[in-house]
Design a protein around this nucleic acid. Structure first.
Lengths: 157, 157
DNA sequence: GCACTATTACTCGGATAGTACGTGTCCGAGTGGGCCCGG
DNA sequence: CCGGGCCCACTCGGACACGTACTATCCGAGTAATAGTGC
């Protein structure tokens, strides 16, 4: 069970973008060079964020990516879901259907006790992610390093 | 981010084994045919459970797998960790090291704010898994289908 | 000086290879039971 | 009848292919700024 490292890239990028002027778009190449990331691959992940409405992409000169809405309304769950997709990590294959007494018309993803237990845990995970926003992260970073906003802002200019 | 389906197999198998006599071992082939699973592949996962001490394996005639300890002391987290490994789904690659002001001697897996936020969520997930045991699942199943214990017991004889 | 237009450089976007991990399978080592033989 | 030893079938365990999903890259479509031109 491995999460795409694109999630890490996406989160850092969103925080960085939250320090720029809301109207200004930053090209993927600029965002990538901050962490020495492969530009094209980061771009691929940013496209996913754009499809989810987290970012807004603009083509042409002076184009690039900018935040699609207020950082306080972008949860970590939003970003993770945009990159990883909406499916749960634990997929109930409903093996009870192939077992004794298995009914083809029953949705064991809901009725199977084990499936329920695993879904309960994943719900706790998703809840914890949904409780934290990009704005929360940004605020914590600023408290630890007050120079970060201006430095990042200058770097992405 | 996809969890191995071996987790599902392992959990069902552990519950089934909890209904058999503690002293009796059940071969992997018998355990597999209950859900029409590929024997060799299930066996591979059961080996992992045995290495973790969740199951005890016995070779030779009348051999097989049996629970290594009381079902009440086997948490879902134990099983998941045995199959999936101890690593977190989110692996901080410490991209801050390659960013501006990155220090090579700093462990950003602990200091990075984003890493901390993701770890917080995974901790919630692990906690939820650790709160549920094989005995809990077994009890719920028995309440819904009182015939399950004896039926399974007979099937694995 | 100003408006319009054609050019041009810039950016995203999806289509295309490479790689690692999860999936699936097989055969050999080891073990315990059961049968045979002798006492 | 009983004990011991040998044989054999059974089971796990690790080593070996296959498929899928993540990683990485490239080139083309579209766009907006810009420079040039005519009025």
């Amino acid at each position: 069970m491995k999460m795409s490292e694109g999630v890490e890239w996406a989160l850092h990028t969103c925080v960085n973008l939250s320090w720029t002027d809301p109207g200004d778009a930053v090209p993927a190449a600029r965002l990538a060079e901050v962490f020495s990331l492969p530009t094209a691959y980061l771009s691929k992940h940013l496209q996913a964020l754009a499809r989810a409405g987290i970012l807004i992409s603009t083509t042409g000169p002076r184009g690039g990516f900018r935040l699609g809405r207020d950082p306080a309304s972008i949860t970590l769950l939003d970003v993770v879901t945009a990159i990883e997709g909406p499916e749960d990590a634990f997929r109930c294959r409903q093996i009870l259907k192939d077992g004794p007494g298995g009914r083809p018309d029953v949705d064991y993803r809901r009725t199977c006790t084990i499936s329920q237990a695993m879904r309960k845990a994943e719900l706790a995970w998703r809840t914890a992610l949904a409780e934290q926003t990009i704005a929360d992260v940004r605020r914590t970073v600023e408290q630890r390093d007050p120079t970060a906003p201006e430095a990042t802002r200058e770097r992405l200019r």
